[in-house]
Design a protein around this nucleic acid. Structure first.
Length: 278
RNA sequence: CACCAAGAUAAAUUUGAGG
């Protein structure tokens, strides 16, 4: 059975969906548990942007003796949310409730992301309340969805309040999560808030190259190339190795501020490192 | 860099012609 399910993964990756039904048929004949395979298929269709087909799996499952479970629904909802298919997303969530499959923290977070992507922060917040009322604990991903959404609709204040709320609940962001939050603030050009987060990150000793890159990009985009360059130097002084992206970001920041002599110098350094400029 | 595995579901950074 595991050989079959690996085969299904390969079929999805190669987008050979015409092979799907014969594999499912064989697996069924041999009595394999197909639940995980259906999830794989759903994600496969999602990556191929075949949303209709992904959703139809929900109807296919029962004929193979399977019932969609939380993981099935979550996977589907997640890919619809990420792809901006908000209408389908809401439809599937509705359907999940109809078949009495209980949404969990993951489900709510995905739904919040979908609403946030549409700029519908009121709805996103209602879902947040509903989720906590039902006893689910919001994660750093849940809060990141709110922060990102509020920044997108231009409400940095609300975004920041949510961040504080998260900290007050004792949720400690990982380096990765800081990256997500920094990037959200950067997109809205809120570098003062971003730098406050970044300082926090440094105090905790978890600042990384990725975070430096995000900060440099943000400063570059608001025309503060000198701050970007300062961070570049600081990163090296802290024994972190700037990667290719760091160079690309810094060069572009300098070029945007018309500091061409400096941009050229970093461009030469990039080539010396035998990296390919993009 | 590519492929595979662990493990059926989660998020982050760089260039931009054209529209």
């Amino acid at each position: 059975c595991s050989a079959y399910s690996n085969l299904m993964k390969l079929v999805c990756r190669a987008r050979k969906f015409e092979e799907v039904s014969s594999i499912l048929g064989e697996m069924h004949k041999r009595g394999c548990n197909l639940s995980s395979t259906f999830t794989t298929l759903i994600i496969g269709y999602g990556k191929a942007k075949m949303f209709r087909e992904a959703i139809e799996i929900l109807d296919t499952m029962p004929s193979y003796g399977c019932t969609p479970n939380v993981i099935t629904f979550n996977s589907l909802i997640n890919l619809l949310a990420e792809s901006g298919e908000h209408t389908y997303c809401v439809m599937v969530f509705q359907r999940m409730l109809e078949v009495a499959c209980t949404p969990d923290s993951y489900t709510y977070t995905c739904m919040m992301k979908s609403f946030a992507k549409q700029g519908k922060m009121d709805e996103a917040c209602s879902l947040f309340d509903e989720m906590t009322e039902k006893g689910w604990t919001p994660s750093v991903l849940t809060y990141s969805a709110l922060v990102d959404g509020f920044v997108k609709v231009g409400e940095v204040g609300s975004a920041w309040l949510r961040y504080e709320e998260m900290k007050n609940k004792g949720i400690v962001p990982s380096a990765y999560s800081y990256g997500v939050l920094l990037s959200a603030l950067r997109k809205g050009k809120h570098m003062e808030h971003a730098s406050e987060l970044f300082e926090e990150m440094k105090e905790r000793g978890i600042a990384n190259v990725f975070a430096y890159n995000v900060m440099m990009d943000g400063y570059g985009k608001v025309g503060e190339a000198d701050k970007a360059r300062k961070l570049f130097k600081e990163m090296k002084a802290a024994n972190m190795r700037p990667d290719e992206c760091s160079y690309h970001t810094l060069i572009s920041a300098l070029a945007k501020s018309r500091r061409m002599e400096l941009a050229g110098r970093y461009f030469e350094k990039l080539k010396e490192m035998r990296k390919v400029p993009n």
